[in-house]
């Protein structure tokens, strides 16, 4: 393969950004010329201005912090139950027979349909959001951990046994690393569901957070703040995904599919 020149490398980096930049420019032009009313869609520069304003007053940081904390604590609770249960059911036939059917039944209930019930139980406090996020995160983590353990190559497990590995060694050196790619799939799914659940929960019932900020802005017809909130959600989702990717690359460096180019 040819070694890329500095100019070629710059071009390679620039190409994926051409389309988004073009859309932004077109959008700005359409609003500035009055082609699109800024009551429906604020110009990109207005959104930037709204973001600057919210950041200056500190309102943005408070809401961002509240939302992030909710997302992470819900994730910790849901993942903290789903992951061990997935491990247990993957390793123990008894545990699986005892719990898997029940889990699969509950899984078919769309967790967002529980919002009215959750508001009745917890009001619009923190518990409601935590419960919904934890519930949403639980299933992908559980299902993918279980699937990962199931898909470990039995030939490797047999090798470990023949070579005298203890049960602990068999788990830490063969089963868990073998299940890791699937566990990461669950993690990324769960992160997506985490943000989705939080947005819905905060939009419907909250007194702080990004969703609340967007709903307040709607009351006062501040379209730029609404769009700002949407973009921040997108950025947070992207950030979570990028961090997982980094983690994947570090943990799955042995696998050519995950090795960085």
């Amino acid at each position: 393969m040819m070694r890329p020149t500095p100019l070629g490398r710059l071009r390679d980096t620039a190409v994926p950004w051409l389309l988004p930049v073009a859309i932004l420019l077109g959008w700005q032009a359409a609003v500035s010329t009055g082609l699109v009313s800024n009551r429906f869609m604020p110009a990109p520069l207005d959104v930037v201005r709204a973001g600057w304003e919210a950041a200056r007053t500190g309102e943005l940081w408070t809401n961002l912090w509240v939302s992030t904390l909710r997302a992470l604590s819900g994730f910790a609770v849901g993942g903290g139950i789903g992951h061990p249960l997935g491990l247990a059911n993957g390793l123990s036939r008894l545990s699986e027979r005892l719990t898997d059917t029940s889990v699969q039944m509950v899984r078919n209930v769309p967790h967002l349909s529980l919002i009215p019930l959750v508001i009745l139980w917890f009001g619009i406090g923190e518990e409601a959001k935590l419960f919904l996020v934890a519930l949403g995160v639980f299933f992908p983590i559980y299902a993918n951990t279980l699937h990962g353990i199931r898909s470990v190559d039995p030939a490797l497990v047999e090798m470990g046994r023949v070579y005298g590995m203890s049960r602990t060694e068999l788990f830490t050196k063969v089963v868990l690393p073998g299940a890791l790619p699937s566990i990461f799939v669950g993690l990324r799914y769960a992160l997506g569901i985490m943000w989705l659940t939080l947005i819905v929960a905060e939009t419907i019932s909250a007194s702080s957070g990004l969703g609340y900020m967007a709903m307040q802005a709607r009351e006062f017809m501040l379209v730029d703040v609404v769009v700002l909130a949407i973009l921040i959600y997108a950025a947070l989702g992207k950030l979570a995904d990028a961090l997982t990717r980094q983690l994947e690359r570090a943990c799955l460096a042995w696998n050519p599919a995950y090795r960085s180019a």
Binding site: A155, L156, E158, M159, V162, Y163, K173, P177, L252
Partner: peptide, 14 residues
Amino acid sequence: KRIMFQEPRLLPWA
């Protein structure tokens, strides 16, 4: 006693 299998059966992550 040790065995060598038909496939290497190496741990790809080690």
